[in-house]
């Protein structure tokens, strides 16, 4: 039932973060937490995203509002990269002529 899920408490212990911090990220819609039998779990698929947010918090002292803004901006950057890749490939056709 909990395959592919990590107990939020275990994660908090390993990362030295408060449960409330993870909960706030969940409240802000930045990550998804699952509650099974009143226990909180983090899906493995959310780990990479969550760890990035924790690094921003720990290493750069960025608060929740900052993390939220950065996450949205990084998403926009990623979308722009994707658009650039498509356009560059289209341009390549003319450059090779």
């Amino acid at each position: 039932m909990t395959a592919g899920l990590i107990a939020t408490n275990d994660f908090c212990t390993y990362h030295h973060v408060e449960f409330t911090f993870i909960d706030s990220l969940n409240e802000a819609g930045l990550i998804e937490i699952r509650v099974i039998d009143q226990k909180s779990f983090i899906p493995e698929s959310e780990l990479q995203k969550l760890e990035q947010m924790i690094r921003l918090h720990h290493e750069l002292d960025i608060n929740l509002a900052g993390i939220e803004a950065i996450t949205h901006l990084l998403q926009r950057v990623q979308n722009m990269h994707e658009e650039m890749r498509l356009l560059r490939n289209r341009l390549r056709r003319y450059e090779e002529e």
């Binding site: 990035q52 690094r55 921003l56 290493e59 750069l60 002292d61 950065i70 990084l74 950057v77 990623q78 990269h81």
Partner: peptide, 15 residues
Amino acid sequence: YRKLARQYHPDLNPN
């Protein structure tokens, strides 16, 4: 360090 880390942190400069 903080100033430069915020500029060059890998999470803020993917790829």
